[in-house]
Design a protein around this nucleic acid. Structure first.
Lengths: 132, 132
DNA sequence: AGATAAATTGACGTTAACGTAAACGAAACG
DNA sequence: CGTTTCGTTTACGTTAACGTCAATTTATCT
């Protein structure tokens, strides 16, 4: 149980990414797999981080933004000043996400309106032209 | 009133984009400004489309995806088959956006939890180390 | 008319986030 | 022991979405 690490292939399968992606994230200091000789071993921590990375990407954050945000989820006993900076960053991202949510709700509403209109148009066409 | 078009500079100011961006969108067939000689004149339709383009971008859709979606907002009396295809596309995007919203809500929740934890950590540090 | 400003058309440059291919080492397999 | 099979490193290629710059054309001002 103290040894639950995964090799690169299992990681790829578990998260549906390529080896290249994992190595790239390591190079960018988003992941920190340990080494067995030359091979990478991904820890539980890496898996938690990768999950957050992929989520961040879906929300349109850049890897660099994500890298900084990850600190919030892995804050240890670092300096208070560093902690405070990370906290501020998180506040901005939270505001960002809530704004995104509001706009998303508006867009969903508009999309539904349009689709309703489209559906009516379709049924009208179906009546006037029963056979294509 | 029948002549409410904007030149490129006013468009840029109104939507906070560069001229290059507008020309690029025209090249990609996302916008269709009319011409006064060689100059572009953006119509009300272009403005409506640009608004949707920029919104789509904020949600992480590619320009190509957006181009197809724009048809939904400008459906005229095209063929039923084309209309139906566009409608299906819209359905997928709507599902996409609603999934995005759900995940966003989850992320916001987690972020808030983390920030609460961070805030406590910060106040603890403030007490134990009043002066830096 | 000459100068200045604004817009246009190429054409090449740039950044992020990987993809892809070559060359090599180690490990497992028959 | 030879050979597939993974994994690694190094390095160049790629795509989207523009940025930037040069050369021109067109419009405006004096």
């Amino acid at each position: 149980m103290t040894n639950d690490t995964m090799n690169i292939r299992d990681m790829c399968a578990a998260f549906d990414v390529t080896p290249r992606t994992l190595r790239f994230y390591e190079a960018k200091e988003l992941l920190f797999p340990i080494r067995d000789g030359q091979r990478r071993l991904f820890t539980k921590r890496d898996r938690a981080r990768l999950k957050l990375i992929l989520r961040g990407k879906r929300f349109g954050f850049s890897l660099e933004e994500i890298r900084q945000l990850l600190d919030l989820y892995h804050m240890d006993d670092s300096q208070a000043t560093q902690l405070a900076k990370t906290y501020e960053l998180a506040e901005r991202h939270l505001a960002d996400m809530e704004a995104q949510k509001a706009e998303l709700e508006e867009a969903i509403g508009e999309m539904k309106t349009q689709m309703k209109w489209g559906a009516e148009k379709l049924s009208a066409l179906a009546k006037s032209k029963p056979a294509d």
